[in-house]
């Protein structure tokens, strides 16, 4: 399906690198490295230079912690969105928020995508996306409350649950007026899931792709990688890339990443193997 993310359209066979930009002092991977606005801005410059088509700006870390009110989240995100919009008109700007009010302000400042990592916790988020002709990312959390960790969560079939919930969310977005080509689904690895759930979602990602909705995967340096390989944060890149290759083979379209260059190479290689992308330049044996 052709994908339209706010101001930007992508061909059916395009894959998209969505680089994570945290305006937080405490996210698990970067531990506040881009908390200062200038540092965050430098991060945007870097990832855009590395070829990222999209940035995902978040003002609240996913894990539990100090409560961040709406005003504080706005102050972290909205003006920064405006700055990125001005400095990088060609990049897709996604905002990682579950709050409709923050999403609305971000869209007014130039955001193209609302990345609802918490699976529709605020039912009015779809209305905001529709009002601004923005895209929305519909994630599966198994009903988890925002910023909670999974505790003894079980599913009869985690893939079935992910498909049912994200497709239902997508249809709710569609009914609210979000354009069909601007709705993306995300199984949300680790969110409301133990490692076995995330592994199964990776293994069976093709079933989500078969729904016809474009699929986003957010794998980067997550605990399911760390627990699979017994590696701490900071040593999970290879495992992340292995999972990325599996998801790319299945047909995921958008990759939410910390490492743009490495992920781009892996995705391109997997898509080339799958026959969805030609080689860059082929002459071996063809002279």
């Amino acid at each position: 399906m052709t994908l339209r993310l706010g101001r930007h359209a992508f061909a059916d066979d395009a894959t998209i690198m969505m680089a994570i930009v945290n305006r937080t002092p405490d996210s698990f991977y970067d531990q506040g490295a881009t908390w200062a606005e200038d540092k965050a801005s430098a991060r945007v410059d870097l990832v855009v230079g590395q070829g990222a088509e999209m940035v995902d700006i978040g003002g609240i870390k996913a894990a539990p912690g100090v409560e961040i009110g709406e005003a504080e989240e706005r102050s972290r995100v909205v003006d920064f969105v405006a700055r990125v919009r001005e400095e990088h008109p060609g990049v897709v700007i996604s905002v990682d928020t579950w709050r409709a009010s923050v999403g609305d302000a971000a869209c007014r400042a130039g955001a193209d995508v609302l990345n609802d990592a918490w699976g529709g916790a605020d039912p009015e988020l779809v209305d905001v996306a529709a009002a601004h002709d923005a895209a929305i990312i519909c994630t599966h959390t198994g009903g988890a409350t925002p910023r909670t960790r999974p505790y003894r969560v079980e599913y009869d079939d985690v893939v079935r649950s992910a498909i049912d919930d994200t497709v239902a969310y997508a249809e709710r977005a569609l009914a609210a007026g979000v354009a069909r080509e601007s709705i993306v689904i995300d199984p949300a690895h680790d969110f409301g899931k133990n490692t076995f759930h995330s592994l199964e979602l990776t293994r069976r990602l093709g079933e989500m792709v078969e729904t016809g909705w474009p699929v986003l995967v957010s794998l980067s340096n997550k605990d399911f990688v760390g627990e699979s390989l017994d590696k701490p944060v900071g040593e999970r890149l290879l495992g992340t890339l292995a999972a990325t290759a599996i998801c790319a083979t299945a047909g995921a379209r958008i990759y939410r990443v910390h490492e743009v260059v490495e992920t781009r190479q892996v995705v391109d290689m997997a898509w080339t193997i799958a026959g969805r992308r030609p080689p860059a330049r082929a002459i071996r044996g063809l002279q």
Binding site: P278, P279, A280, R281, A282, I283, G285, L286, Q287
Partner: peptide, 14 residues
Amino acid sequence: VLALLPEYAGFADP
């Protein structure tokens, strides 16, 4: 030259 054939095309034409 087989590289002239469309089935062996890459992004760049060698």
